[in-house]
């Protein structure tokens, strides 16, 4: 364990920026001077831009691994010949001050996009090219429920370096070799001070086991829950584990020597009405009840079966962002209660 000051950490970050893209929490002004702000992970040009004291960013950092839009292929087409170039990302990235829940979100995405073969080449490359510098939360923030879902505010399992804020600066824990390599150049002193233990008290949210979900699939509850859903994409886009995407070609330039095409991949959302509509018009998830239910089943029932991971890390962003107050923790509580009721009723019959 090492001890360093915020100034030394800042100097180290500034030096890192010479050779890698440093992505860190940054305050973004909104509404043309109306005084509102958003905190977002963004590439920073100087440590002066980095916000060290924060709760949660508005968006998860998943976009630095699965960008909201990326070029998959550059395609040149001339008469009857086509050439394709892979546009694989090359940049070295450092993600500074990633929270344990977001790092855990990347573990979920790894399971889906890398470990479940064949691996997604673009995501995998960005993961390889990125070093994660974690920053422990001293406690849970409003809407957070990581502890209810197997995480912890000081969980260092999914980062390369873990920082803990202490009196006089930060304790630095090297978790992986990649992390150790990145730390070369950090001015810090060795210490035997133990890492502070975060306050893990948080809301008690019962999370039903994956195998208990199918019995509830046809309950009226889902229709009632989705009544207020607007079918917007906000919850899925802020989510650290939602990864649905769309792919399409864009013709960028056309001339006598042929056309230049980009095959783009962009985020898409299972909440969208047309998400599943096929060319003939048939839509297997025609109502928002079908779609919202599918989103929650995907997280708590399907992903555990298909990829071995619950696709929720308790970051609370979907709760904070929902314009109409749909709350995943409330849903989990109600679903657990519903399951208990059904089980009681079943016993009564038996």
């Amino acid at each position: 364990m090492k001890l360093t000051s915020r100034e030394q950490l800042a100097a180290w970050l500034d030096a890192l920026m010479e050779r890698a893209t440093v992505i860190a929490p940054r305050q973004v002004e909104c509404g043309g001077g109306s005084g509102t702000h958003l905190l977002l992970y963004q590439p920073v040009a100087s440590s002066a831009e980095v916000v060290f004291d924060f709760q949660r960013t508005a968006m998860s950092p998943k976009g630095y691994f699965l960008p909201s839009t990326e070029v998959l292929f550059e395609i040149e087409k001339r008469s009857n010949e086509v050439t394709l170039d892979e546009a694989l990302p090359q940049d070295e990235q450092v993600l500074f001050a990633i929270r344990p829940c977001d790092a855990r979100g990347l573990r979920v995405l790894d399971a889906l996009l890398v470990e479940h073969e064949p691996a997604d080449a673009y995501y995998a490359q960005r993961r390889r090219n990125t070093t994660l510098v974690g920053l422990a939360c001293p406690h849970l923030w409003p809407e957070c429920f990581c502890t209810a879902i197997g995480g912890a505010p000081d969980d260092s399992a999914d980062v390369d370096i873990m920082l803990y804020e202490v009196d006089g600066g930060y304790l630095v824990s090297e978790i992986t070799e990649k992390g150790t390599a990145l730390l070369a150049g950090l001015n810090a002193e060795e210490t035997d001070q133990p890492a502070p233990v975060s306050d893990r008290s948080g809301p008690s949210v019962p999370v039903l086991a994956p195998e208990a979900w199918p019995a509830l699939f046809n309950e009226l509850y889902w229709a009632r829950l989705s009544d207020r859903c607007l079918s917007c994409h906000a919850c899925t886009y802020v989510c650290p584990t939602c990864r649905c995407f769309d792919v399409r070609d864009y013709t960028r330039a056309a001339g006598p020597n042929g056309i230049h095409i980009e095959r783009l991949r962009s985020w898409d959302s299972c909440m969208a009405a047309a998400y599943r509509r096929i060319a003939g018009g048939h839509n297997p998830r025609p109502s928002k009840m079908h779609r919202l239910r599918n989103r929650y089943y995907c997280k708590f029932n399907y992903c555990p079966q298909d990829f071995g991971a619950v696709a929720c890390v308790g970051c609370g962003r979907c709760i904070a962002v929902c314009p109409v107050g749909i709350d995943i923790t409330e849903m989990l509580g109600e679903v657990a209660a519903l399951a208990a009721t059904l089980e009681e009723r079943g016993k009564g019959k038996g």
Partner: peptide, 12 residues
């Protein structure tokens, strides 16, 4: 079904 990847990733 509508598909974008064919390899179990796009979620569609």
């Amino acid at each position: 079904a509508k598909m974008k990847c064919g390899i179990g990733k796009c979620g569609r």
